[in-house]
Design a protein around this nucleic acid. Structure first.
Length: 218
DNA sequence: AAAACGGGGGC
DNA sequence: GCCCCAGTTTT
């Protein structure tokens, strides 16, 4: 991977997106940049489609917008509010557990610190980095399945481990792109660089891609 | 019936 | 690294 080349790629993708819908968390952030809401919305979005996540987040946030508020709800009430995201027991329990930890260890506030975020139940690197980038405006690199797939497919890394993709990006991606690369590549990955049968014929990055015409994930 | 949906944890 | 998790919509 080469710094100038990756910059060009991101620039081309950014320019080509036009009015493509950004991912949920990026949209919710426009409405309310509260890191806590971004954290909860990210937990909801786990393996769930964006439109569903957005409605679920709105319904849940109409009931409560703070750890204390959410802890006042039962798992049953949370499950009902977030229908139909799926994984109810798991998600409702995780959300309450996160709120409990926030109250007990972090004074009810979301920490702006990777290690502390990772200490929360149900929070891994993807979630932590998204909260740092979108919730705290920090230059964090959030690698989800889209970012991972696309960076691998471009031929810039060759690994099955998202943390290695993240490390490579930290070395080669100019800092100004760090907190936006996730939103850009998710939008790009949903519309053009699909997991299977990507639309290479209308892809702006073809000249810089080493795997034009692939039909599977990488 | 199977795949897809912006992972995480436990071992 | 591998396996498990567990719900709904879409194909």
């Amino acid at each position: 991977m080469d710094n100038r080349r990756i910059s060009r790629v991101i620039g081309l993708i950014e320019a080509s997106l036009g009015d493509t819908e950004p991912p949920v968390v990026d949209r919710l952030k426009e409405r309310d940049p509260d890191p806590f809401l971004i954290l909860i919305a990210t937990l909801l979005s786990l393996r769930t489609k964006d439109e569903v996540t957005e409605k679920a987040a709105e319904r849940l946030f109409s009931l409560a917008k703070t750890p204390e508020g959410i802890l006042a709800l039962t798992e049953e009430e949370i499950s009902r509010a977030i229908y139909p995201v799926g994984f109810y027991r798991h998600k409702a329990a995780t959300i309450r557990a996160v709120c409990r930890h926030l109250r007990e260890r972090f004074d009810g506030r979301v920490p702006a610190d990777m290690e502390k975020l990772l200490s929360l139940p149900g929070v891994g690197r993807k979630t932590a980095n998204l909260v740092l980038a979108q919730g705290f405006d920090k230059p964090a690199i959030c690698v989800d399945t889209h970012v991972h797939r696309i960076v691998n497919r471009l031929g810039y890394v060759s690994t099955r481990r998202p943390d290695e993709t993240e490390a490579a990006l930290r070395r080669h991606l100019p800092r100004r792109f760090w907190k936006v690369i996730n939103g850009l590549l998710v939008a790009f990955g949903r519309t053009v660089c699909l997991p299977v049968s990507p639309h290479c014929s209308r892809c702006p990055v073809v000249p810089l891609c080493e795997r034009v015409g692939v039909t599977r994930s990488r």
